[in-house]
Amino acid sequence: MAIIVNKEEKRKNIALSCRSLLLEHGINDLTIAQIAKTAGIGKGTVYEYFQNKEDIVFEIITLFISEYEEEFFKKISQSDSTKEKIYHFLSLLYLNEETKKHLSLYREFIAISLMDGTEEMEQFTQLCHKNSTEKLTMIIDEAIEKREIVPEARDLIPALHLFSKGLVIDTQLLHKNAQSEISRFVETLFKLIEMKEEK
């Protein structure tokens, strides 16, 4: 009797087994041979589940994003204020040594995308951007509905993304402290968008 393999499950398992490998070697230095060896499969089998190396990288990054989403929803469910929720959204990449490794990977991804990114990288970036926009929109819309912040705050969602991406660069090149930069930014932001009590 033939064994039926769940292709999506197998893809995920290969990606899971190569998480540490990607963090250790980075995107450019990762090879299909290393992936096959780490996953305990043949090089040809890798191509049964992935189109190319980038496809594997996307799958692994997607796993990281799922973990961040889980942590994000846990943190915001424990947060009373919108200010805290936005702070958590912006600070997830700067929590500990493990997230710092993810941050290095993200920087490499940005560098490759800017220098010689593929159409697939662009599409993946757009998908990630859409995903994080939905989370920010959820936080902002809920706060507007509760009359905690002004409705115009919704127009600042792109600026929040720009701050987040800029911080990834500044923490590396200018050695800025992420937590203090995020705290200052969020405090300033809320001075502008928080609903003022009518006197």
Rank of each mutant, 00 (worst) to 15 (best):
M115E: 15
K74R: 14
I76Y: 02
L103E: 14
H88G: 00
E145L: 10
E97S: 15
D155T: 11
Q123F: 02
A153W: 00
L103V: 15
Q78N: 11
E122T: 06
M138G: 03
K146M: 04
T82K: 01
N131A: 04
E120G: 05
S104L: 15
E120H: 05
Q123H: 02
A111N: 11
S104G: 15
A153T: 10
F73H: 11
V150L: 14
H88P: 03
Q126S: 04
T133C: 09
S81W: 02
K83P: 13
D80E: 14
G117M: 07
A143C: 05
F124N: 02
M138D: 09
L127F: 04
A159T: 12
C128T: 07
L93I: 10
K135E: 02
M115Q: 12
H129T: 12
P158I: 01
S91L: 08
L127D: 08
K130E: 06
Q123L: 06
H88M: 01
I76P: 05
K146F: 00
D155I: 08
E152M: 14
E152L: 12
P151S: 03
T99H: 08
G117S: 07
R147K: 15
M138H: 12
E134A: 13
C128R: 09
L162F: 10
P158Y: 01
E108F: 08
K75E: 06
S104P: 08
Y87G: 05
F72C: 02
K100G: 06
M121S: 02
H161M: 08
L95Q: 14
L103K: 14
D116S: 11
K83C: 09
S77W: 01
H161E: 06
L105F: 10
T125Y: 00
A153L: 03
T99W: 08
I157F: 01
L103P: 15
L162W: 05
F89W: 14
K100W: 10
I149F: 04
E98G: 09
M121G: 00
T137H: 05
A111R: 11
L95R: 12
H129D: 05
K130F: 10
P158G: 02
I139V: 15
D116V: 07
S104M: 14
A143D: 02
I139S: 05
S91F: 12
I149G: 07
V150T: 10
L95K: 13
I144P: 04
E98Q: 13
E134Y: 03
T133E: 08
I140Y: 03
K74G: 07
I139R: 06
K146A: 13
I157M: 04
R107K: 11
R154V: 04
K130P: 00
K100N: 14
T125R: 02
E108N: 06
Y94Q: 06
L93W: 09
A159I: 11
F124L: 01
N96I: 11
Y106T: 15
N96Y: 09
K85N: 04
T118W: 00
F89R: 04
F163D: 01
T118D: 00
I110P: 03
K85C: 08
D116I: 06
L93R: 13
E145P: 00
L90A: 14
S113R: 11
D141M: 10
I144S: 05
K146R: 10
S104I: 13
S113F: 15
E84I: 02
A111D: 13
A143F: 03
K146T: 00
E142S: 13
T82C: 12
F109Y: 13
L156N: 01
T82H: 04
E145G: 08
L114E: 12
E122L: 12
K135G: 01
R154Y: 09
T133V: 06
R147W: 06
H129V: 09
